[in-house]
């Protein structure tokens, strides 16, 4: 099998595994919705600046929870089996693609429930949706690699947070700026710079992940 086919099969495998139990996805969706509701109860109504920041914080913690398990949910023996039949590049690429799909689903549900409860007018909804999609893609690409690293170190959750927060902050700054532009309904030409920076960071992280993952899995 060539790389593309392997990736396709592995993504399909991940989706089927998830669909069979539906445990992880339902848990994480419930997590998002209840966090949104807790925030709603605590804040009642907020101005646009806080609204935007709060949304990204909720999404950040939900995505850490969702992605940190991506390399530990299957047993090490089964992982070993995958590595014997598939290219390590295909394994990491499949994980990134699967996590991106999960994150898109997650962020759309978070966004819907969030905007229904808080009901704040958005100046440019299409651009905001683009920001959310780019954000879920970036979270997936960065956290997948970091979760691969932290999976190797036993005590998972602390290391995951310590390693991933500094790495995600530059992305988060650009994302918050882009979505704030969308909230204020500014002209789209202003935001092209941010979109390009996000895409560039994504390309760089995915390229580095592809280069480094073959060294990571070999024990």
């Amino acid at each position: 099998m060539n790389l593309l086919q392997q990736v396709k099969t592995l993504v399909y495998k991940d989706i089927v595994l998830e669909w069979r139990s539906k445990y992880a996805i339902n848990g994480i969706l419930l997590y998002v919705v209840s966090t949104v509701f807790v925030c709603y109860q605590a804040f009642k109504s907020v101005d646009t600046l806080v609204w935007n920041a709060l949304f990204w914080i909720i999404l950040l913690f939900a995505s850490i929870n969702a992605i940190s398990r991506s390399f530990v949910q299957e047993s090490p023996y089964r992982q070993l089996y995958y590595y014997t039949i598939a290219n390590p590049k295909a394994v990491i690429l499949a994980k990134i693609i699967y996590n991106t799909l999960v994150m898109i689903l997650l962020s759309i549900i978070a966004f819907t429930s969030y905007s229904i409860t808080f009901n704040t007018p958005i100046g440019d909804p299409t651009l905001y949706l683009v920001a959310v999609l780019l954000g879920s893609m970036s979270f997936a690409s960065v956290f997948t690699m970091v979760s691969g690293i932290s999976a190797k170190t036993g005590n998972n959750s602390t290391i995951m947070a310590v390693l991933s927060f500094p790495v995600i902050i530059p992305l988060l700054i650009v994302l918050i700026k882009l979505s704030q532009n969308a909230m204020n309904g500014l002209d789209r030409a202003i935001s092209t710079g941010e979109i390009l920076v996000l895409l560039a960071i994504n390309v760089i992280t995915i390229a580095i992940s592809l280069l480094l993952f073959p060294y990571l899995w070999r024990d």
Partner: peptide, 13 residues
């Protein structure tokens, strides 16, 4: 090995 990987990952960022 793992810290080398993280180091390479962190430098461009």
């Amino acid at each position: 090995k793992i810290s080398a990987i993280y180091n390479i990952f962190a430098f461009p960022i």
